[in-house]
Structures are given as C-alpha cells and as structure tokens.
Design a protein around this nucleic acid. Structure first.
Lengths: 358, 358
DNA sequence: CAATTCCGTGTAACCGATTACATGACACAC
DNA sequence: GTGTGTCATGTAATCGGTTACACGGAATTG
C-alpha cells in the first residue's frame, strides 16, 4: 500500500486537486462543504502531503539547519531545546549537525545542507569560520553565533568581555587583590575575549595580572590551580575561563589543603549545573541558553521572511551574562555558612531540571 | 540570482541532464571527459541538487527523525552526538524534535515528520506511546527506545531492572542490610522498572524494603532523603532511582550530620557528570549513551534499507548498565580515602569532556 | 430580463530532480 | 561492406505538490 497522494484525496472527496491544496495550505477560497469533504478524505486516507513535492513547487523547506561545534552537556541540550520550541511555534523543523570542531568539517556540513534548509544557524568558536560560512552559504540566510562580533552580518554573541569584567570587579569588591586567571585555549574566541576582559578590568583597577592557560577542561583547571597555589605569591582569588576549569581548580585547591573561599576565592563562567552543586557553591556567570537559542531562531525566521528585501538586520545582538554569587567568592572576612547555603541549593531546582530517564 | 538547476549545469557542460545526474549520483556509465566537464560546471555554478526534487523522484529523503521527551543535560547531548556522527557516516541528516512530554505532543511531532524522513527513532518513557507511534507512522520504519520491551517491534531498551539488581547486590556485598529506595515518578517506565529490580533483589536476599517516591529531581531526592533519615529504623544504604535524586539525598544526609558512606551508603543511576564530582563521589550505573545512540541509528538505517523485505528484525536489543563504584558506597568498615579518590577524579576527564563555549 | 460582478472550482503548466527507453556512434567479425 | 553488439548519451515521462488562469453559476444591478 503506497502512501496516498493529493490526487487520491481529490478523487475520494470528489473535488479537484486544487481545492484539496487550497484547503490544506489555507490559501484561496473554499466553501465549508468542500473543506469538510476534503478533510474527511484526508482523514480516511491518512494523507500527509509529500514535503519534497511541496518544497519543489514553493521552494521553501520549512526547515532550519543548525551547525554546532563539539558542545557538551547542558549547553547543548538547552540550546537545542530553546531553538526547537521556537521552531515548532513557527512551523519549522530543525536539522542538527553537531560535533564540528574545525572549519573544514563545518563547511562540509553547511554544503550538505544547502537546498535542504531555508536558513542556517552556525555556532562556531573558530576564528575563520565566519567568512567560510557566509561564502559557502550563497544566498541562504545565516545567523552567526560564533562568539566574535562580525560586523555586517546578523549575529548573536555573548558578552564574554563584559562578563569577565563583572567577575573581576566582583572579586575586587569582596576585597581580593591578587586575582589570577585560568584562560581557555588559545584560538578559541570566547576564551580570548574572556581573557581580554580580565586583563582590562585588572588594568583599570591597577592590579598586577597572572594568567595560566587551560583548555576549558576540568583536568586542565586542576593542573592550572595546582600550579597557581604552588608558585610564590599565591593568589587570593582565581577567575577561571569556564566552570569546568573552576571545578578542577577548586578540587586542586582543596587537595592542597586550602579553603575556598577563605584562602582563595573562585569564580567560573557558564553556570553549568555542577556549579551550584559544588561545595562551596561556585560563583559564576549565567547565560540563559534556552532563551538565547529561542531568540536566535526567531531572528533567523525573520531573516528568512525578509529575504531579498531591505536587509536592515545586520546587527550584532549581545547577550549579557548575569553574575550568580555563591559561597566560593564570599568576602574573605566572612565566616563560613555552608549549611545554610547547602539547604538553599538543595531545595531549589532552578539550574537543574532533574529528569534524566534511561 | 536564482540557484542553479541541473539544466543550467547540463547547458554549461554541453551535455544532457541525464549525464549530469549520472555523474552526480554515481549511477550509470559516463566517460571521463563527460564527468570532467560536468564537475567543472558544477563547481563554476556552485550547483547543489535540490533535495526536494530528488526526494520527489526517488522517494527517499536521506533524513531520519528523532522524537525525544524532555531530556536534559548530558543525556540529551550524548545521545544526539552518537546519532549524528553515525548519521553523517551513512549520508543521512537528523531532524530533531525534543521536549515531548506527553503522548499527544509526541504524536503530533511524528505526524509532522511523515513524508519528511525515511525513518524514525522514538524515545518515550510513556506507557502508551509505543502503540501510538507505530499506528501513526504508517509504513515508516521506526525504532523504539521507550524503556519498555515491546515485543514484535524493533527496539532498544536499557536494562533498568538488571541495573537496579546490580546496585542492590553491590550494597549487600558491602555489608548493608537496611537498604531503602527512592523511586522515580509513577507512570515513568524506567522508574518503575528500576523499582521492580530493587524489590526483586531485596526479596531474593530476604531483606525488608522501604520505598519513598521521588520525581527524578534533585529537590525530590532531598525531600526523600530527609524523610528517610528522620524516620525510625534509619537505613544504612539508599539506592536512588537516578543520580539527581541521589545527589539531593546526599546533601540531605550531610545536612543531617550523617556521613556518606559511613553512616549511609548511596547509589544512583545514570552516571551523570555530577556523580563523579560529588564529595564523596557517587556510585552509580553507567550507560554509554553516545554508543547507544550510534547503535540505534545504525540499526534504523538497516531497517530502512531492508524495508519491505524480510522484516526479521523485531528484536529488542538490551543495553546493560555498568556499575561504577565510587566512595559513596565504600564498605562500611573502610576508612575514608577522600583525597585519593579526589585526585583520581580530578585528573580524569572520562565522564566530562570539558569544553563548553559561550 | 440582460448585463455585470463575484467567487468557488477545475485544468494544466510548472518546480527540479531521476531514469526507462530510444538513439546513434563505434568496433569488430564475417 | 554489411550486420551485430556494446556503450555512452539524449529525450521525455514521471514523482506530488502549488497556483495562474479559465470557466461557469449565482448574486447584484440597471
């Protein structure tokens, strides 16, 4: 039994294919009686329009492609969730291609999506991918989320620089002066922007800087933390380029017998779920990822609908991270209030939607 | 400038559309000179075949749909990663639709994918979704990962029952006898299967059971843990239905001034990244999620290619969880060796691939 | 009552690929 | 030199929708 076509439906409803199409697309005039007959036939035949055929005649696919680098954990899922919910609301589908960690792979993925999607959202922490993406995509609307403001094309970036400044200013405000930074890997735009923010905030406060390079991994954070406490002139605060390195550093500090935050305060970046579950809870910078994903998708849909017209949208939208203060950066003089914080954290589910079946 | 069609390519290469098609699909004989001319024209025109048109004439979309419930964090991203990598290897694209938490929504998603995909992978922890999926999909190959063995259709399930038995037997082996269970929400297949495994293992060992119902969330685990330690006849071990509840319970125990594992041992399920980062590290059951996703996709591709033929594949593949022993379930008599474990965990990146840009 | 408008409906062209079949060139054998 | 077989290539039908245009019947108007 082959799938029903629009002609089967037309025949069964005793109308023309044009009427069936009009009922189904909602375009053009039809009487109620015709509509009723068509819908009955559709129901009876379990008819679903062939999307390929539709896309052939309308040259729209109602599909949006998402190109992602190697993202892990909460970040990935929240982002897709936000985009997916928005996509459904607009009647779009989402084609996802993940794990593209170099420009080569990413451009292959873009190429393979051409003709299959109405627009692309490209996340890429790689310096050169932005141009690649735009040249490869031809006339396809593209929204970049590559972490670097790329003037002249629609994009969304996280204010990594501002976030880093916030982190440093917070540490200064709580009385720290010897503030070190564990940076992310060289070549990663986000890492470099966060580093730049750290350097600037320290310069503004006239404080000396210490930077150890990490790789955005927990292990590298552990190594960097160990290195920092072993050196002379031990810092009284560490701002890590992301939460995973902060977690590694925290464990290294505790291994060395130091107290966080009394001996060394600690601030991360991203607010991954683990941040709130560490003891002490990790101060960090939060980005509402799902919201960012939703917003990215909505913007792309607008770009698609406006295609060809006044391309007024070349702005670079900035998402500002929010500082979430937890005990890891309590003022140096303050007594520990571990249990209170612990109870609060344990009761809340804000950063952790728990269900995780299978 | 509209996109080039196969006719433009044919014209430019001074051959027929048939030859262009033959070169591009690799089917049929062509001389090297023709191939060369065609490829040059393709390159010059930046030609990409229209997937809709192709799908119309071949009735294949080279796309696989994935229907997911509300999944969070690592589970979601690992699963998609595994599927995505496999899909690329087979030349397939992945359409993802997530956040379907009731059968209604899930079936709407399935319907909207008909005609757009060559096959479906449906994850659903809902009891009735299995039948729904199969009836809605028509002749579309479907692979179920709904957590309940559903004889007669291709499916992949996690051995939740066996995992729970392993957990309980492990706790018994380390000397515990008063073992309580924090279950997941009623109506969730996985939760119920894990509960059943607990009950069976306890019955086999002739031990009395205690069950408190949770909701797979950290907060519910915290409540359940508090309730368990407050009651008379405090358990000396708790097996939680998932890691998030185990984490909540651990914090509740520590809030109550109890030591894990000395006073109460703790075992979770899933091996989320946080499990290894808790202090003490949480004993749990690990599933290689990416691998499971990859395997699911490969199996579906096989189903697609075999469509219509001998549908010999109606088996229910079982994925067995692996017990990961960490300090939260150390034998009751053993001294704490926190620092050793801590160093090991911090050095390893096994469960945590750290990069988490933006 | 005829003329005009309006509007629901049907016919058929079109979107851009694939592919069965026809064609024609060429080589080889008799 | 004609016949036969092989094989690269071209022609045209086809997939299943959408939609411009034509058409015809009812309602409105003079």
């Amino acid at each position: 039994m082959k799938a029903a076509t629009i002609r089967d439906v037309a025949e069964r409803a005793d109308v023309s294919v044009a009427s069936v199409s009009r009922v189904l697309t909602g375009a053009g005039p039809v009487t109620d009686s015709t509509r009723k007959k068509v819908l009955e036939a559709v129901e009876a035949l379990q008819y679903v329009p062939h999307s390929g055929a539709r896309s052939l005649s309308t040259s729209k696919t109602q599909t949006i492609g998402v190109i992602l680098p190697d993202l892990y954990g909460e970040f990935f899922s929240e982002l897709i969730r936000g985009m997916d919910v928005a996509a459904r609301a607009f009647g779009y589908h989402l084609i996802v291609s993940s794990s593209h960690d170099d420009a080569e792979e990413a451009s292959a993925a873009i190429r393979s999506m051409r003709g299959r999607v109405d627009g692309l959202i490209v996340l890429s922490p790689h310096l050169d991918a932005a141009n690649l993406a735009s040249s490869l995509a031809g006339r396809l609307p593209i929204l970049l989320m590559n972490g670097g403001a790329d003037a002249g094309r629609p994009s969304i970036v996280v204010d990594n620089h501002g976030g880093a400044v916030q982190a440093v200013e917070h540490l200064i405000a709580t009385g720290r002066r010897r503030i070190a930074h564990i940076s992310g890997p060289t070549g990663n735009l986000e890492a470099e922007t966060r580093l730049a923010g750290y350097l600037q905030a320290m310069a503004d406060a006239d404080l000396p800087t210490t930077v150890v390079e990490g790789a955005f991994t927990q292990a590298s954070g552990h190594r960097a933390g160990a290195e920092l406490v072993a050196g002379r002139n031990r810092p009284d605060a560490i701002f890590a380029g992301n939460d995973m390195m902060a977690v590694g550093a925290m464990l290294a500090l505790q291994d060395a017998g130091l107290s966080v935050p009394d001996d060394v305060a600690l601030v991360g970046f991203d607010d991954v779920p683990i941040a709130g579950l560490m003891r002490p809870g990790l101060t960090t910078l939060r980005i509402n990822i799902a919201e960012t994903g939703r917003s990215a998708l909505e913007r792309l849909v607008r770009l698609i609908n406006a295609a060809g017209e006044a391309v007024a949208d070349t702005a670079c939208e900035v998402v500002r991270p929010e500082l979430v203060v937890r005990p890891s950066s309590n003022p140096a003089t303050q007594a520990r209030t571990n249990s209170g914080e612990r109870a609060r954290e344990a009761a809340g589910t804000s950063s952790l939607k728990g269900e995780n079946p299978q």
